[in-house]
Simulated scan of single mutants.
Amino acid sequence: MSDSTLHQLLAAELVLVQQLSALLTQEQDALIKRQLDLVSQLIDTKNITLQNLEQASKARVSYCVERGLQSVEQIESSLGEQTAIWHDLQQGAKLAEIMNRTNGQLIKTHEEINQHFMNALAQQRNEDLGYSADGRLSQLSAIGRPFDRA
């Protein structure tokens, strides 16, 4: 005999894991295409989904503790022939973890590239250009006095 309540809790958790995986896929696509405004929106949605997933996981863990289901074997025994949902949940969670790690690497790579460009721009900056008192662009050496003196 299978535990229908546990099955329902696992099914709800699995739906959230699948939603998270879909969001991570969208996030990855947006990162690759450098659609940073979309990434920001997806992060907000992802955070809500993660909060819901955490609540669903806590409900499942609480239920398992109440029933004395402390090991994988006990959970699988309680599910009977419906263990596929438990395995699907475990695989989905592993996939989401890998995708999240990959997206983190993409973000890190984007940050490194941006820092490289900022450093290159800073090195190319012309230190002798500035604005004169009348707001026109001019050579600083032509102003006639150093900035640190009145």
Rank of each mutant, 00 (worst) to 15 (best):
A96K: 00
T49P: 01
A59R: 08
K58S: 02
L89V: 10
E76K: 05
S78H: 01
S40Q: 08
N47R: 11
N47K: 11
A96L: 04
I98H: 09
R101K: 13
N47A: 08
K58D: 05
I85F: 14
Q55S: 11
K58F: 09
Q51P: 03
L50E: 10
R67W: 06
W86E: 03
S71K: 02
E66V: 14
Q74H: 14
L50C: 10
I85M: 04
S78F: 03
S78R: 00
G80V: 07
Q82V: 07
E66T: 07
I43N: 03
N47F: 11
D44K: 13
T45N: 01
L79A: 06
V61H: 12
G80S: 03
C64I: 09
Y63C: 10
T83Q: 07
L69M: 08
Y63Q: 05
E73H: 13
Y63V: 00
L42P: 00
V72A: 13
G92R: 02
Q82P: 10
Q55T: 13
A93I: 09
I98E: 04
G80A: 08
A56N: 10
C64H: 12
V72N: 09
Q91C: 03
S57F: 08
Q51L: 13
N52H: 07
V61A: 05
V72S: 08
E66F: 13
L69N: 01
T45C: 00
Q55F: 12
K58Y: 03
I43Q: 15
A96G: 09
S78M: 12
G80Y: 06
S62M: 12
A96R: 00
E76T: 02
A56C: 06
T49H: 01
Q70M: 12
A59D: 05
T83D: 04
E81V: 11
M99G: 02
E54L: 14
L53G: 00
L79R: 00
Q90C: 05
C64G: 08
Y63H: 13
Q90I: 11
E54M: 15
A96Q: 06
Y63L: 12
S78W: 00
A56R: 12
A84N: 04
L50K: 03
L79P: 00
A96V: 06
Q82E: 10
E54Q: 10
A93V: 08
S77T: 10
G80P: 05
D88T: 06
H87E: 08
V61T: 15
E97V: 12
E73K: 11
E76A: 02
Q91M: 15
L89D: 00
E97K: 13
I43L: 08
L42R: 00
Q74E: 14
A84F: 01
S77H: 07
